[in-house]
Simulated assay, not measured.
Amino acid sequence: MKYKSVFDIIGPVMVGPSSSHTAGAARIGRVARMMFGRQPKKAEITFYGSFAKTYKGHGSDVATVAGILDFDTFDLRLKDSLQIAKDLGIKVELRTSEVLTEHPNTSRIVLSDEEKQTEVVGVSIGGGKIEVIEINGFAFQLGFDTPTLLVLHEDRFGMIAGVAKVLTQHRINVGHMEVSRHTRGSRALMAIETDSAVSPQVLEEIRQIPGILEVSLLSLQ
């Protein structure tokens, strides 16, 4: 668990009642929205474990939808998110599952429209902090507390070295890095947490590397 101070345990500035079930749920929803890149037409939300049992009382449902609307944890519109989503024409489907998960505060979010679909699985680990453990079927363990590069690429020799070369040229230090793939030789997703900001120029240089399919930059801060 990536706690850096006592304030991480207390939780962020937020609309209550719970840092884990409300603020954490909102942040998982917001990561899904950032991954999708725009307002979706449909949001399918599945709660597991403790989320599934207490989501109504703790507001995990309205918090998750608020995150999907790109509202932060302290946004007072959070409590009205279901109605706001309806007014915007977003179809929200809420489900619970009895499938056992490694962490009790787990949610799976699928966002879609006519052109694309994004699936994110996240867990709320307490104090408003989250870990994303799956992105479109790729396994990870990411908190998005720092700028995080997500690079979808062909699974072949030299891809990591090519991205690292661009970061080195711009004096960007890597704090944490993970690579996940579905099957050998198909596609892989590279996640890189950096210690400093990543400019649009850097993103464009990475996009120009042969074999790079998609580049995005996410951060909850």
Rank of each mutant, 00 (worst) to 15 (best):
E204G: 06
A191V: 07
L167I: 04
I212P: 05
L167Q: 04
T118W: 07
T118R: 13
P210D: 14
L69H: 04
V151N: 06
G29D: 01
N136I: 01
D113L: 05
R181M: 02
I130H: 04
T96A: 09
F74H: 14
H103E: 15
R38M: 11
T101E: 15
M159F: 04
H153F: 04
F71Y: 15
S112D: 08
Q208I: 02
Q221D: 12
H176Y: 15
E115S: 12
L142F: 05
E98K: 12
V92W: 01
G29F: 00
H58F: 10
T96G: 09
L111H: 02
E154M: 03
G11W: 07
Y48K: 11
F7V: 05
R30K: 15
G185R: 10
T64Y: 11
I84Y: 02
R184H: 08
M1S: 11
T183I: 04
T46W: 03
F51H: 11
G29E: 10
I192V: 08
I84S: 00
V215D: 00
K165T: 13
G211T: 02
G11T: 10
L76W: 10
I206E: 04
T106F: 01
S196N: 13
E178R: 02
F7W: 08
N105C: 08
R181W: 03
E193Q: 10
E102P: 07
A164I: 12
G158A: 09
P200H: 10
A66S: 14
G162K: 08
A43N: 02
K2G: 11
M1Y: 08
S219F: 07
Q141V: 09
A164D: 14
F36S: 08
T146V: 07
S107E: 10
V6M: 11
V174S: 05
